[in-house]
């Protein structure tokens, strides 16, 4: 039971830290919170939306909710992403997509541009990232545009 409470407190602490990192606009983000572009190209909103929704691509709606996405049955394992463009700039979004565990090692979010320190990877995916550099630029463009007036 005591362990249970500890787990619960740890979960609350994780959530609290996560929301501080993502929603406290007055805190100057650390340098390590930003990732420069992985490719010299401008991200495209429509392609980024496809990356967000498609089962064969990023499939972000598996775990995240976004009112602007028309995908049915959105998951709720990760936080809702409405207004994410108000809270994070492109470099911060890119950093989290590339490998969010650099911010929070306990995060459940997979790294979408990493091939290091993985175990038992299926043969067809060995040495490959989940998303390409261009897909990440497209996704960043889509997410950076998710801005709500009240936020």
């Amino acid at each position: 039971m005591r362990t249970g409470v500890c787990h619960w407190l740890a979960a609350v602490a994780t959530v609290a830290t996560g929301s501080l990192l993502t929603s406290c606009a007055t805190v100057e983000p650390a340098l390590t919170d930003r990732q420069p572009p992985l490719v010299n190209a401008v991200g495209r909103y429509a392609q980024g939306e496809a990356v967000f929704n498609s089962r064969d691509s990023g499939h972000c709606v598996l775990c995240h909710q976004l009112a602007n996405s028309r995908a049915p049955f959105q998951g709720n394992i990760g936080p809702a992403l409405d207004g994410i463009g108000n809270r994070l700039d492109a470099a911060q979004l890119r950093f989290r997509i590339v490998d969010s565990r650099r911010l929070n090692p306990a995060s459940l979010m997979p790294a979408y541009f990493n091939t290091n320190n993985l175990q038992q990877v299926a043969t067809e995916f060995q040495g490959k990232t989940v998303l390409s550099a261009m897909e990440i630029e497209d996704l960043v463009a889509f997410l950076a545009a998710q801005q709500t007036p009240e936020a």
Binding site: L108, P110, A111, Q119, Q120, V121, A122, F125, V130
Partner: peptide, 13 residues
């Protein structure tokens, strides 16, 4: 409990 695969997730995650 071991993370595995390209998505680096454990059963318990």
């Amino acid at each position: 409990s071991r993370r595995k695969g390209q998505l680096d997730l454990a059963c318990g995650d």
